[in-house]
Each structure stands twice: as C-alpha cells, then as structure tokens.
C-alpha cells in the first residue's frame, strides 16, 4: 500500500476528525513587510523550511520557502521585503475541513505541509503528514498498522506511538520470551510486575502493565511460533512496553482486534487460552496501543501507560 493509499484508508475510518483537531498550532508566521534576511534567520533558528506570510491584519497572503530565499540571495535581494518574493498561490486547509479533505490536499499537491486558516483567513496552525497519524492516535488511543512492505517499521529504535527514541540497550527491564514452554507463558509479565512493585509505583498502574504485558507475552508463546522479547522503558510521565516477536505475524489484524476472535487450537484452549480477549484486554488496560504486524516477519506490540501523577484528558 502506498503512503497515500494508506492515508486515504485512515481518512475513511476517521472521517469525523477535523483539521483543527490534528494540526500543530504552534506555527511560526512572518509579516510580509519584514526583510527576507529576517525570514532566513527565523527559519534557521526554528529549523523549518517554509513559513506562512501574513499582512498587518494577520491574514494569510503568501508563503515563503528556502528556495525563495536562495533565489533572493542569488539576485542580491536579501534586504527586500518578503512580499516581493513570496509565493502568493497558497494552498490552505480550513480548520473545519474533514480529514478526507486534508488527505485529498496531500494527494493533489505535492507539498509536505499546509497552513490551516480560520474563517478570517488567519493562520491558526499547520498540518504535515505526521500530524495526521498523530492526530488519529491522540483521538482514539489506538491504531494498528498492518503493512506488508515497510519492514522498517517493525522493531525500529523509534516508538511507533510517539516517535521518540527507544534504545533497546537502555531498557529498564528486558525479558527474553521462551516460546517453547507454554507453562512458562506470562513469566516475563509477572517479573515485570514484580520489578515495578519493587520500585513502589502505584498498584493500579502496575496491575495494568502486568495484565497487558501478560496478554502480549502469551500471544508470542501461543501464536507466534517465533522468539520474542519484552522491553520496558520509563520516560518521564509514562511507561512504554514493547513486546516483539519474529514469528508468523498476525494473519488478519482486523479480525484479530475483535473480541472473541481466536485461532487458538483445541489443546491451547484446554489450557484456558483462546477466548479471543487478549488484544481487547491490552486495549482496555493500556492508555495507548499500537500493533504492527507483518506476515512471516513478526509482530510488535507497543503500549503506553501514563503515570497517575499527571491528569490526562479522557477521550
């Protein structure tokens, strides 16, 4: 599936999301009467490659990019006002546009980001492709990406949820799952729970981590036919648990997400597994969950648990 097709698919599922809900609102804008040199400095400091340009009423009238600035350098116009060189053909998104409209813009124009405006044409934000995915994550606490092609998303050093770096060698807790022993399934989760109890975290979050990790771990043992690992990271206000395996992958993730769906064989069911509730439980007990799976490559479950000191909005 191409990047854009994938976005189109998300757009259909999440059509009630509005551009204003997913945009980044700390957008850097600049007045049209400022010097080009000024724009250059600002872009350097903010590490951005383009900026919306506004008039004295803060209304959007253009956009200035790195290319425009290079051009100005070539012709020695760096001290000219911005409005002389900015492009005035700005493609914008309205803050009430639907996610589908936003995705259309990305498909029809090859820009990496678009300014978002309100009814008065004032800039209220900016949207990049990443904002779309993050916006969906924020809103639904959950997303799964079933991607046949992009192996790189599996087991990378970056969190599939927050994009932050997760160095395996820096994990606070690691457990290697022994898939050959069904009776040992869940040992890693029990040990992780013990580890957290020892650090005197609140019993509620420890229990939630324990249960969700247990479900992910037992799935590796029961279904993956591969080897797996549990990694635990603590980042400021949250715990991140990643359970990865190099097994057969989840055949049909859409089905697997449904409560009651299970491919567990009878001898596994006799042992009490196979209610088809495992993934539902992960969803219930984690604050955010991402499952990435690829056939014959493996499965990665990533979960975030927010520490209770902070109050997070319930969605």
């Amino acid at each position: 599936m191409s990047e854009n097709n994938k976005l189109a698919r998300y757009a259909a599922i999440f059509e009630d999301i509005k551009a204003g809900e997913i945009m980044s609102s700390n957008v850097v804008e600049i007045s049209a009467d400022k010097k080009i040199a000024h724009a250059k400095e600002l872009m350097k400091i903010k590490k951005i490659s383009g900026m919306p340009v506004v008039d004295e009423n803060k209304q959007l009238i253009g956009i200035i990019s790195i290319e425009d600035i290079i051009h100005a350098f070539e012709f020695n116009k760096i001290n000219d006002p911005i409005h002389r060189i900015m492009s005035t053909q700005v493609v914008t998104i309205h803050k009430d546009d639907s996610l589908a409209d936003v995705v259309d813009k990305f498909e029809n124009y090859k820009y990496g980001r678009f300014p978002v405006v309100d009814d008065d044409k004032r800039v209220c934000g900016i949207i990049s492709k990443e904002d779309i995915l993050h916006g969906i994550l924020e809103k639904f606490n959950l997303i799964y990406i079933h991607d046949q092609k992009r192996t790189s998303t599996l087991n990378t050093e970056y969190s599939a949820i927050t994009g932050e770096k997760l160095k395996i060698e820096e994990a606070e807790f690691h457990y290697q799952i022994d898939s050959s022993d069904i009776d040992a399934a869940g040992t890693g989760a029990a040990m992780l729970k013990q580890f957290l109890t020892g650090k005197s975290f609140h019993s509620d979050i420890v229990r939630r981590v324990g249960v969700a990790t247990y479900e992910a771990e037992t799935n590796v043992v029961i279904h993956s036919r591969g080897q797996g690992d549990i990694y635990f990271f603590q980042h400021e206000d949250r715990f991140i648990v990643r359970v990865v395996d190099n097994g057969i992958g989840i055949e049909d993730l859409d089905k697997a997400m449904k409560e009651g769906y299970s491919t567990a064989p009878d001898y596994i069911r006799e042992r009490g597994f196979g209610a088809g509730m495992g993934i539902a439980n992960m969803k219930r007990f984690a604050d955010k969950l991402v499952i990435i799976s690829e056939k014959k490559v493996g499965t990665q479950v990533e979960m975030i648990f927010y520490l209770p000191t902070q109050t997070w909005p319930l969605i």
Binding site: G186, A190, V211
Partner: peptide
Amino acid sequence: GYTYPQVIRTALVTD
C-alpha cells in the same frame, strides 16, 4: 475449574 499452574500466574498478575 481450571487447574494448570498458569492460573496462579494469571491471578497474581491481576491482583
């Protein structure tokens, strides 16, 4: 009615 050792681990995990 479930008596495998696994049940104890499950129970411990969920307090």
